[in-house]
Simulated assay, not measured.
Amino acid sequence: MSKLFLDLGNTRLKWASADRPGDWLAQGDAAHDRLDAALAAWRLLPAPASVHGACVAAPALREQLDAFVQAHWARTIDWLAPSRHALGVENRYRRLEQQGPDRWAAVLGARARFPDEALVIASAGTALTVDAVTADGVFLGGMILPGYRLMKRALATGTARLPDAEGHLHDYPTSTEDAIETGIRTALAASVDAMAARLVARGETPRLLLAGGDAAQLTSLLNTPATLVDNLVLHGLAALAFA
């Protein structure tokens, strides 16, 4: 029987079903205010053997999914909590209760897809997270920054004269819109490159994995070659469930 995997993020739900790791039988995504579309798609699926999720969204959304899965399939969702060890990865996050389960799942998904490699895992979504894993499987930790859209919104709402308007990338911007666009994208890309440089300084040769809806905003500015990946959280949940 297949299993169902859920990534309930800050703004969207991503999901996939599989009967083995990484081989999706069905998948989809929906904004928080369109969860009914995801539930409608799930009604067409055969009953899964189990349901596994990572959640960083509001408790009410998690409860809505819990209720559907219980009512429709008589299943409970196994929501991931970060652990000290999993799938050969040692987690050095100091306080596990503070670590987002999506970040931990993404680390595990990245390790499952690229075993025995040092990794920088950058997810450019509502927030930009940049995490580091050594070749021998130690998750060292990482950074969290406001994402592309959050940065633009913060400038627009926190200042009197800076607009939330579309700009373009230039080496030497000569308009406010272009200055904001170039500044934000440069700052985000530099944060990713900085983490790669830190791993290199440790003697690692990291592979940079770039994911998230705003990944395309960063690729042209990175000094480190990037491998674009999708759904690392779902891949991590699947690797755990089928281990």
Rank of each mutant, 00 (worst) to 15 (best):
A211D: 15
L188K: 06
E117A: 15
G183F: 09
M151C: 15
L209K: 04
V138W: 14
S175R: 11
K152D: 09
D230P: 05
T129I: 08
D164Q: 15
A132H: 07
E166G: 12
A124I: 05
L128A: 04
T224R: 04
T176R: 02
G147F: 06
L218S: 09
V120A: 04
E117C: 09
A211F: 09
V138T: 15
A135P: 00
S175N: 00
A216C: 09
V233N: 12
V229Q: 12
A124C: 14
A194D: 06
A216Q: 12
Q217K: 14
G147N: 05
R161D: 06
V200S: 00
M195S: 04
T159M: 01
S220H: 09
G137T: 09
G167H: 03
L150W: 02
V229M: 11
A201M: 00
D230K: 15
L155A: 05
G203V: 03
A215S: 13
V138M: 15
V130S: 02
G213N: 11
G167F: 05
V233I: 13
P146I: 08
L188T: 06
D131H: 04
L232D: 08
T186H: 14
H168Q: 13
T227V: 15
R185E: 14
V130H: 02
A196S: 13
D178G: 06
D136T: 13
A189G: 10
E166S: 13
D193Q: 02
P146A: 05
A211R: 04
D164R: 13
A160I: 01
R202F: 04
A160F: 05
G158E: 07
Y148S: 05
P225W: 10
A196W: 01
G158P: 11
Y172F: 15
R149T: 15
T157L: 15
G137D: 13
T129Q: 06
R149H: 11
A118N: 01
R153S: 13
L128Q: 07
G167R: 08
D171I: 01
M143V: 03
Q217D: 12
A165M: 11
G212M: 07
L210E: 07
H170P: 00
V233K: 04
L221F: 08
G142D: 07
I184D: 05
R198C: 02
V120S: 10
D178Y: 02
A226W: 08
G141W: 08
V200A: 00
F139T: 08
L222E: 06
A187D: 02
I121E: 07
V120G: 03
G167Q: 06
Y148R: 11
A135M: 00
R198F: 02
